[in-house]
Design a protein around this nucleic acid. Structure first.
Lengths: 203, 203
DNA sequence: TAACGTCATGTCAGTGGCTGACATTAATTT
DNA sequence: AAATTAATGTCAGCCACTGACATGACGTTA
């Protein structure tokens, strides 16, 4: 009764897709907005749910916890990375396989940059969110290592290449976010890979 | 009144150092034991405190949250790593500086191995603890990068070298934990560094 | 030694994240 | 139209964590 007279539901109009008008998406939008307005810690989950025209209990049916609502894309990202590793050219070194996968991933495109930026600002100011981000990155690394093993790369090479690939990813992502000339993400990956080589070899 | 008739306080006898007989240490022991016996999630903080002869409120004066009790050594580890980076030989590459620091760190010694093993088993079976571990590792990486910058290493080289160093660290630590021949930690660091080089260069 | 100040701890009340159990209602199937 | 399914609501409760205040042990100083 009270979950329907909300504030934001009008943005995604009710009764257009009938009952569930992308409840999950509404929760994600409401959470991002509220986290930005009041800060993560100062935002009770109940408020997010209310803003989305839902109940706290329903929020927890869509997301495992208060943080997860900001990490919706990670599953798809991981799938694409794994596919990229599997389909990479056969003559590459393990690390090159991972960076090649990062380049062809088609995930960090201009349309997503603004959203990624806002999200990043939130993460930077909140340790709890950073923890979750690191966990997702670790999952990414683990999946990449598994995909490398499927290509015949042995341990510990696979895990090391995957972790090194994540280091490249972090550097590349940071530059892509800050970059005002809007270079392609793949460009930043190549730059970071070169930097890593230099850091490893040059005194 | 009730916090004194506890179960474990006798292990570290009361009234030896007067009032506070290493309350912090008692909490760490109690937590490790209970997390092993019942599992992390199934152990209320109140039980840890009671086992240490203290109150839940007092637990939270010693540790920021339920997980932090397992990460007491991380501050010292970070200090040693930073010192190692600062004091490393001048002719090394940035990554070699970090791995050299890891080798001279004198932290992963045989006496700590059993405790490290038990702790590791806990982490492996609990995502919440893994998140915190990753956060500590990220802090380590950040501190190493900062120390590299103090040596004149520019960005993004410093962060990349630090992250790559953490990749080496993870691999080395994993082998040190599993190693039955009890090789020195520094040995595993060198092995991992070589593996990383191979992974980067060899097709 | 008695008064005083400090610090670790205890007590209590309260917020909020998260869960299980059960009820309700829109949408789908038969 | 009845029966079934899926998404949501309601309610009660556990527990992590915090602020405010009280207490008791220790050291200091008059």
């Amino acid at each position: 009764m009270s979950a329907t007279d909300n504030q934001l539901a009008g943005t995604y109009n009710r009764n257009m897709g009938r009952w569930k008008n992308d409840a999950r998406g509404r929760l994600e939008q409401a959470a991002l907005a509220l986290y930005q307005e009041r800060g993560f810690e100062q935002t009770p989950v109940a408020d997010i749910a209310a803003r989305a025209g839902l109940t706290e209990r329903t929020y927890f049916r869509h997301f495992a916890d208060k943080r997860e609502v900001l990490f919706g894309g990670s599953k798809e990202l991981q799938e694409r990375l794994v596919r990229g590793v599997a389909e990479a050219a056969p003559h590459l070194s393990p690390l090159e396989v991972v960076t090649a996968a990062l380049e062809t991933i088609q995930f960090f495109v201009p349309e997503r940059r603004e959203h990624a930026r806002q999200r990043q600002r939130l993460l930077e100011t909140n340790p709890e969110l950073q923890e979750r981000e690191l966990m997702k990155l670790a999952a990414l690394s683990g999946a990449a290592a598994e995909a490398l093993r499927s290509r015949g790369v042995a341990e510990p090479a696979a895990s090391l290449a995957a972790d090194a690939g994540m280091a490249v990813f972090r550097a590349a992502f940071g530059h892509w976010i800050d970059d005002n000339d809007v270079q392609e993400f793949g460009h930043h990956v190549q730059q970071a890979l070169e930097e890593l080589r230099a850091v490893l070899l040059r005194p």
